[in-house]
Amino acid sequence: MKSQVTWSKELQFTGVSESGHKIVMDGNQGKIGPSPMELVLMAAGGCSSVDVVSILEKARQAVSDCRVELEGTRADSVPSVYTAIHLHFVVSGKDLSEKHVARAVDLSMEKYCSVSLMLAKACEITHSFETVAA
């Protein structure tokens, strides 16, 4: 897997993925795009959400929406790395089984989500979930 990041101006950079997708990153308090650290948080949410939805669909659960609310705590000193990240999944659907949702979230966090598993080597990762009838 490859990507490229190019300086645009000020503290703004454009990242281009191997698949050709572009994203603007902003190291200037997020004036025109997310900061690299915000992208790390979003990557954990995106990676784990893919797992959760995929696992639930394979379990024939009628998922209509999946949202993950992330909260990251960073060190006060430089480098201000994440010291803790909490992911709270809100899964909506018709007649969802809490047991299936709990299993999907656990499997993602403990076995499948590459981003969260990598981050867990450097900070505490916790998770929770709720289901919403749709």
Rank of each mutant, 00 (worst) to 15 (best):
60 R>W: 05
70 L>E: 01
22 K>L: 09
86 H>A: 07
22 K>C: 08
134 A>H: 13
53 V>H: 09
77 S>D: 14
73 T>M: 11
31 K>F: 01
75 A>N: 12
5 V>N: 06
26 D>K: 02
42 M>I: 13
4 Q>K: 15
82 Y>M: 11
40 V>M: 14
55 I>Q: 01
112 Y>R: 00
49 S>N: 12
118 M>I: 05
81 V>F: 14
54 S>R: 06
29 Q>F: 11
50 V>L: 13
50 V>M: 15
72 G>T: 00
69 E>F: 14
52 V>E: 03
23 I>K: 00
62 A>H: 13
87 L>W: 00
9 K>G: 08
84 A>S: 12
70 L>H: 01
46 G>M: 06
2 K>P: 05
49 S>T: 13
23 I>D: 01
105 V>T: 02
74 R>A: 05
62 A>Y: 11
17 S>L: 06
13 F>G: 04
60 R>M: 09
74 R>L: 08
93 G>N: 07
89 F>D: 00
131 T>W: 02
44 A>L: 09
130 E>A: 12
59 A>L: 12
3 S>R: 09
88 H>C: 03
107 L>I: 08
38 E>D: 11
52 V>N: 05
128 S>N: 10
9 K>E: 15
16 V>D: 00
18 E>A: 12
18 E>N: 15
64 S>A: 10
120 A>Q: 12
92 S>K: 15
65 D>V: 08
45 G>R: 03
107 L>T: 01
86 H>S: 09
51 D>C: 02
25 M>W: 02
92 S>Q: 08
5 V>H: 06
18 E>S: 14
109 M>R: 01
43 A>Y: 04
74 R>G: 00
13 F>P: 08
